[in-house]
Design a protein around this nucleic acid. Structure first.
Lengths: 129, 129
DNA sequence: CCTTGACTTAGAGTGTACTCGAAGCCCTAG
DNA sequence: CTAGGGCTTCGAGTACACTCTAAGTCAAGG
């Protein structure tokens, strides 16, 4: 699979894929005889995982660390696990905070809704029954 | 309250407070006779709310829109409400996605844990009982 | 009076993560 | 055989949100 195809399937742009390879987030891809990148479908699994790390707010620096450990093989699994656990805990904390903020947002919105209600009642000169 | 004090109380740096004022996220602060910003404690409520918008991923552009509406008074409440509702829905979607990613992360970690367990069993030449 | 430290402004610099432009190569279809 | 499209590399440019520097002002304490 060439880069354009991979871009379509992964949701990344070809620019981003090259960028990720340049910085080491994606392994250096094999090239065909005209120097074009030729990808195996298995790369998609890795890209998807990277997407999850990104979606949960992991900075590229840390993904790079994980990617480097992965390249070094099975001996680094404990460290990879530790890295993910640390990240998961941060994500969890973040999630909790997000839920709290969502509640505040909901209350604020409810406040606006109540205000609108009062205005409507006022405008129509109706009383609550 | 001067800017240093507000910085301490709000958790923003003085740089950030000036930056926010410059771009219109904070109202232009009154100055004392030596041109120093003199804040009323009520600004803290607004800064805290901005913090929540930020923590839930609202870009500054949109906070600016909200801030501008707020400056225009009560007539813009419906629009402000709509803006917040739109944002809340995005946050909610984001939250849901985050939870899903957290689950995947947990599974991945569990996978590493299981692998470690297998290695330990192998090393000690013990059998499951 | 003089130093110290917090403040002022305008504008430049930083970090993160892309995103794109330029110039050129190579395969396929007409 | 040639035009088109997708690919290559390298390096520059962009967007966002700060973050800091420089040069100067000002009020209070010793």
């Amino acid at each position: 699979m060439k880069i354009g195809e991979l871009a379509k399937r992964s949701g990344l742009t070809a620019y981003t894929i090259r960028y990720y390879e340049r910085i080491g987030l994606l392994p250096y891809a094999d090239r065909d005889r005209s120097s074009q990148r030729d990808y195996d479908a298995s790369i998609l699994t890795w890209i998807e995982f990277l997407g999850r790390l990104k979606a949960t707010g992991m900075p590229i620096r840390e993904m790079l660390r994980y990617a480097a450990l992965r390249e070094q093989g099975a001996a680094t699994e404990a460290e990879r696990r530790a890295l993910l656990e640390k990240h998961r805990d941060r994500v969890y904390a973040n999630l909790t905070e997000l839920q709290a903020n969502l509640l505040v947002l909901d209350n604020k919105i409810a406040g606006y809704a109540a205000a609108e209600q009062r205005i409507e009642n006022g405008h129509s000169h109706r009383k609550a029954r």
